[in-house]
Design a protein around this nucleic acid. Structure first.
Length: 106
DNA sequence: AAAATGACGGTGT
DNA sequence: TACACCGCCATTT
């Protein structure tokens, strides 16, 4: 486990119910603004869906990626996340971490 | 050490 | 909205 990867997972764990975050946003919060793609890999190799809610991580346009996208969508719907034209309505559901939740407080 | 990978993202058509 | 391109990047091979 590298520090970067750990930060990403830690952040993923604190995403509130009913909210989502984008790969790029996650990368930035973890300290590497342009590593969205790498973050995608971390989610793919997610060791445990139960402890790390990777289904709350979506693409920048609100679309759901990954082979298990159907399941992710389902879980999000259960949490009350709003969808618009087949995508997550980021305007409403995107998580905006405040200072208390920022990486600095980890 | 070097090349390949992929659950990205922005841009242009 | 949908697709094709192409640059990016940490991690894996």
């Amino acid at each position: 486990m590298t520090p970067f990867k750990e930060k990403v997972y830690t952040l993923t764990r604190i995403i509130p119910r009913g909210k989502v975050i984008t790969y790029a946003q996650l990368a930035a919060l973890a300290g590497v603004p342009r590593a969205a793609r790498a973050v995608g890999m971390f989610m793919k190799n997610n060791p445990d869906m139960r402890s790390i809610p990777c289904y709350r991580v979506v693409a920048s346009d609100g679309s759901i990626r990954g082979p298990n996208g159907a399941q992710k969508r389902e879980l999000l719907l259960l949490e009350g996340v709003k969808f618009k034209k087949g995508r997550v309505d980021l305007a409403i559901s995107q998580w905006q971490p405040d200072e208390m939740n920022s990486i600095e407080s980890l």
